[in-house]
């Protein structure tokens, strides 16, 4: 790994830290969504666990950096030197850049949730013993999202506009990952279908670790690692095809 990729994570983290307006606004949006759902959940007399679950799923979704659009821009502007000529891998650079920025965003949102959570209805916090595993699941979730985002971004070369595909993927994440309700509450047949997709490892794994504890450790961590492997392979194959197509077509 070259110098630039090794340090990209820290550079992106610091760069995101300096974008005050963006992260303040994102925190406000996050708190507004939490307030909105706290009112919705209290009107249906849902338990506090449901709300804590939603706070974690929203954090994971809002905190993750949308690298798809920066890749889309690189391809649409035919910024081939960035893709091909730099000594470090474009794939590693983009994923690390996204991860660095996402880590800062998630940290800020988590702090916002801790400070303002009581105003939104979070009274009791989960035991501290659950947090390390939840952090690990959260990290794996961010990596899966970034890998999916990277792959969708690369598709710009063939599809011209990937915005709809990006939002389709986001909607699929909401449903199959269990954004509002944990997928444990879905009908059994549909729940099994959800576990055939990567989405439960994006939302359900970190949120249910916080709410329900550290059970199903192998499923949560092993499944996420398997999906990371699959997406790394898909992204590498797509990247190789893209570079081949650029060399052929120019």
């Amino acid at each position: 790994m070259g110098w630039s990729t090794r340090h990209m994570l820290f550079l992106a983290f610091n760069w995101e830290r300096r974008r005050h307006v963006q992260w303040i606004l994102r925190s406000l949006v996050y708190l507004l969504i939490l307030l909105l759902f706290s009112q919705i959940f209290s009107s249906v007399h849902a338990s506090e666990d449901r709300f804590v679950y939603l706070a974690v799923t929203q954090l994971v979704i809002l905190g993750c950096r949308k690298i798809t659009f920066s890749i889309e821009q690189d391809i649409q502007c035919r910024n081939w030197p960035t893709l091909m000529l730099l000594p470090s891998s474009y794939f590693l650079r983009k994923v690390e850049e996204g991860l660095g920025a996402s880590l800062w965003s998630c940290a800020v949102l988590a702090v916002a949730a801790c400070i303002f959570g009581p105003f939104c209805g979070i009274i009791s916090w989960p035991p501290a013993g659950r947090i390390p595993l939840a952090l690990l699941c959260g990290l794996l979730s961010l990596i899966i999202q970034l890998l999916m985002g990277f792959w969708i971004g690369l598709l710009t070369f063939w599809l011209r506009d990937v915005r709809n595909l990006y939002f389709l993927n986001l909607s699929a994440t909401f449903l199959f990952g269990g954004l509002i309700l944990p997928i444990d509450l879905y009908p059994a047949a549909f729940r099994h279908c959800c576990f055939l997709t990567p989405y439960p490892w994006i939302l359900w794994a970190p949120a249910s670790t916080i709410v329900n504890g550290t059970g199903q450790l192998l499923l949560k961590v092993g499944g996420a690692l398997a999906w990371i492997g699959i997406f790394c392979w898909i992204a590498h194959r797509t990247m190789a095809r893209l570079l081949q197509a650029i060399q052929l077509r120019g």
Binding site: N164, F167, L168, S171, A172, L175, I180, Y186, P187
Partner: peptide, 19 residues
């Protein structure tokens, strides 16, 4: 893709109103 996107979004709410 838009049909599927909106359909999936509403299906998420369908699960909520099912509960």
């Amino acid at each position: 893709t838009t049909f599927f996107k909106l359909g999936l979004f509403l299906a998420t709410w369908l699960m909520f109103f099912h509960e």
